[in-house]
């Protein structure tokens, strides 16, 4: 991974991104944050609906139909902006404990969200059977918390030294 990251940093796209880094990197990061805001807002609306705290004039199915495309659309945006940031600064991102921990949480969180939004049979009765179960509500909360952890780990990429000896950045160079 070390040599890959260093190789990537010598490629021309990486170089091109860094030439314009004074505005490009904060700009792409800002788009990445707008993307996570869309995801969090949408997940939050679904969570509140599942818990029965908001949106109860809508069925759960109507709520997920409303927000699921925004969640997965924004996840696509996150992938694209994320790749740009990796190519621009491969060593900072890839030689980083927070980054890889974040990727694990992204994999788990995306899978859970996909199961929630697409995995259940698309029948209202099925939803209604699940919706009042405590495990269903707990799973919704867990999914939301995983996305909160993704935000924290994403921010901690910039502060990887707080992990101490877990941070490969310390051994780098």
């Amino acid at each position: 991974m070390n040599s890959f990251a260093h190789w990537l940093s010598t490629t021309s796209p990486s170089h091109a991104f860094r030439v314009h880094e004074s505005w490009l990197i904060p700009g792409v990061q800002s788009i990445h944050i707008v993307g996570i805001a869309v995801i969090m807002g949408s997940l939050f609306m679904i969570l509140l609906r599942i818990l029965g705290w908001a949106g109860t004039d809508q069925t759960l199915r109507q709520t997920t139909d409303r927000f699921a495309p925004w969640i997965f659309g924004a996840l696509g945006l996150q992938l694209v902006t994320g790749i740009v940031m990796i190519v621009a600064e491969p060593v900072r991102e890839l030689i980083n404990f927070s980054f890889w921990a974040k990727m694990v949480f992204v994999a788990i969180g995306t899978t859970l969200a996909a199961i929630f939004l697409y995995g259940f049979p698309n029948r209202e009765q099925q939803w209604d059977r699940f919706v009042n179960r405590r495990t269903f509500k707990s799973l919704a909360i867990v999914t939301f918390v995983i996305f909160l952890c993704i935000i924290v780990l994403g921010r901690l990429i910039a502060y990887d030294h707080i992990w101490g000896s877990w941070s490969p950045a310390r051994q780098e160079f």
Binding site: S42, I151, V152
Partner: peptide
């Protein structure tokens, strides 16, 4: 500082996300 900043990001994603709705 990193943790406070992370909480700042978490809460404002909810601010902006819900306003956008």
């Amino acid at each position: 500082f990193p943790i406070i900043e992370s909480i700042h990001v978490m809460s404002f994603t909810l601010v902006v996300g819900t306003i956008a709705v």
